[in-house]
């Protein structure tokens, strides 16, 4: 009986917690637990509000090209953390590490970016969401 009650509490807790987190834009798009890293070529860079965004062409393990959609904080935060308008350009090869998109989507919330010359940029000081 104790086990059954515990299971019920867990089930109801999960549904209650889900009702809020699933609706938040970050929680609806990205995992708080799963992180990944992708290296590729920048095909579009948007240094704008409300979120800066980079579209990255990545070659997967099967040799096919995937376009990854990486986003992060707005320019005010980025300038304070070493990323200004000219830091990253179309054609650059960079590595992005961050929270992975949910359900296998090709999305990243950027925690760190490493440029070709080894420069590391931490849009939020390296903190994960």
């Amino acid at each position: 009986m104790r086990k059954l009650i515990y299971s019920l509490v867990l089930a109801s807790s999960a549904s209650l917690a889900g009702s809020a987190t699933a609706h938040h834009s970050f929680a609806a798009e990205f995992s708080y637990e799963d992180f990944g890293s992708r290296e590729g070529e920048v095909v579009e860079v948007h240094f704008v509000n409300p979120h800066a965004r980079i579209f990255l062409a990545v070659t997967n393990a099967n040799g096919e090209e995937e376009i990854w959609d990486a986003q992060t904080f707005p320019p005010r935060n980025l300038i304070a953390n070493g990323w200004h308008r000219d830091t990253i350009n179309v054609g650059d090869r960079i590595t992005i590490e961050g929270n992975l998109g949910l359900e296998g989507s090709f999305k990243l919330w950027i925690i760190s970016m490493t440029l070709e010359d080894g420069t590391e940029i931490l849009p939020n000081g390296g903190r994960a969401n």
Partner: peptide, 18 residues
């Protein structure tokens, strides 16, 4: 103060890609 340079294109582009 900075100008709030906002562009909705990346949002729509991301939706289209997904």
């Amino acid at each position: 103060m900075m100008e709030y340079d906002c562009d909705s294109y990346p949002f729509y582009r991301g939706l289209e890609m997904e």
